[in-house]
Nucleic acid binder design. Sequence first.
RNA 1: GGACCCGUGGUGUAGCGGCCCAACAUGCCAGCCUGUCACGCUGGAGAUCGCCGGUUCGAAUCCGGUCGGGUCCGCCA
Length: 596
Amino acid sequence: MATAQSFRTHTCGELRPEHVGQRVTLAGWVHRRRDHGHLSFFDLRDRYGITQVVTSADEAPAAHQAAAESRNEWVIQVSGAVRHRPEGTTNVELPTGEVEVAVDELTVLNESKVPPFYVNEEQPGLEEALRLQYRYLDLRRPPMRERMLLRARLASAVRRELERDDFVEIETPLLIRSTPEGARDFVVPARLQPGNFYALPQSPQQLKQLLMVAGYDRYYQMAHCMRDEDSRKDRGPEFTQVDIEMSFVREEDVIATVEAMVIAVSREVVPDRPIQEAPFPRLTYEEALVRYGSDKPDLRFGMPLCDLREAVTNVEFRVFADALSGGGAVYAIRAPGCASYSRRQLDELTDLARRHGAGGLVHLSVEADGSLRGPAAKFLGGAEASVQAATGAEAGDLLLVVADSDRVAAATALGQLRLEMGDRLGLRDPSVLAYVWVHRFPMFKWDRDLGRWDATHNPFSAPVWEEAEQMEADPGSIHAQQYDLALNGWELGGGSIRIHRRDLLERAFALMGHTIAGMRDQFGALLDALEYGAPPHGGIAIGLERWCALLANQDNIREVTAFPKTQSGSDLMLSAPSPIDDQQLADLHLRVNLED
RNA sequence: GGACCCGUGGUGUAGCGGCCCAACAUGCCAGCCUGUCACGCUGGAGAUCGCCGGUUCGAAUCCGGUCGGGUCCGCCA
């Protein structure tokens, strides 16, 4: 309950029958007015709710006159007695719906222009650009307000859980050093050091590891991070991560600690959303890839990928044979009851598969007599039965098959089709929270463009200790102590046990083509620190906006961000970015070159 | 860097070569209305169809470009 103030005695979400008879003062926005001439009703709104206030020409002529002149979104202050609404006129939709305020005094605190969109109604088709331009009005709208309050409760619950568990919040700087690893940096010119630049953090990765060396063995922070990369609905140029790091822990310990926090927070913040499975299931990266075609699988539904290698091994169909002989794979999913899909629907699915890297899509309908129908059916030779056995297909089902000489490409393309079919068949229950850990990622992947091995995740991640010796001998075979947390098909966060010994970190970096001098230059502080008693440590970072969006059942992080950027990085309200004037440029020793 | 979709009174939509100096709903303004809660009734104002150029006798409608927004690939953890 908010502290009492002189402007108001109560909020607009507060009054109940127990207040009847009291004289109260409320202040808020005119949400909607219903003017009956001699009697008028106002819904008065603030962030706590809506209360109906009434003016009457007979009882309070001056207030009634002021009410008649008031308009939506004006800010007014009203005083009067709380009374029961007459029999049969209560509003069960409103928590305050049993009472109303009989206004005897109305003060207009500020007028409002007619807003560019409805503040008092949901408007599904409303142009997002307009909402962003007038974000302060958009944020007034109850659904947006609920999401902002949910986000606040989420962050608050996270803090409470972590602090209860002895974590300390430590802020790290926003002006740090640029490193070429990872995403492109946002950069800030250093006025006092002409020609030099700070970078804004992509994450406080090195700093939190240094805090471990410093002995703050349980650190967390609501860390603002910036990455100068193209936006998506689940990522923007700036975001907040729940950044966590712990010392004297193994992978088990971090997972257990974070999982307990996530469960407690979820139950507190969205008590009506069931957690599908707790303890959270754990999949290795390999299992996730092979069963769901994703390293962030949506476990709310089944429809697993089926490996058709055995089933089609003797089939002469070129698409399959080439994929298999090329070291690839043939995977299928079974879409129950979709055998009657139209040409158009199948084309859409084929297009989706292609967009996600598949060469094409083979579709087979299971006929009533058990035979398979489809353009590729005639090439299957005698393999129909084995394909059906491998997929469990029954009459009326649709089989979607992707073959590729790159097994990861085949699986991920089909993984996208799985999600699409999950949507089309309504299998992705919007109420359920299906958290899942994915771990044991390959430590390195071969980067064809760079011609060298590169870290699959964060370059500071430790290898599985028992595998570390083979690092140089067979980089592709070893795994990182890396774990991602996924929720309903989104990557919520990721972390790892870090390398805490300098020699091992140098070996890992060397493998990725770094020279000793280059390492010293970019990561000197961390390398040095590892020589001063760095404890074994590891952590995780959870994307707050993604988590919040999922808890709010939104599929876009802008819906849980107060002032988001557009896809092209603009702030439509502030008109940022913008040019700066010549004097500012001169102070920063910068010259703008807009050629090419 | 690329692909696709969207852009018509304040807002959301319809119109997709002449019947459109543009229709509907809502909002807005005015009048009436003493129990409404998307109050109701009556009347009124309001857009040259994102912008530029082209095709055509004729363009909101077709074509090209451009700007803004979105989704996706690349990128990004």
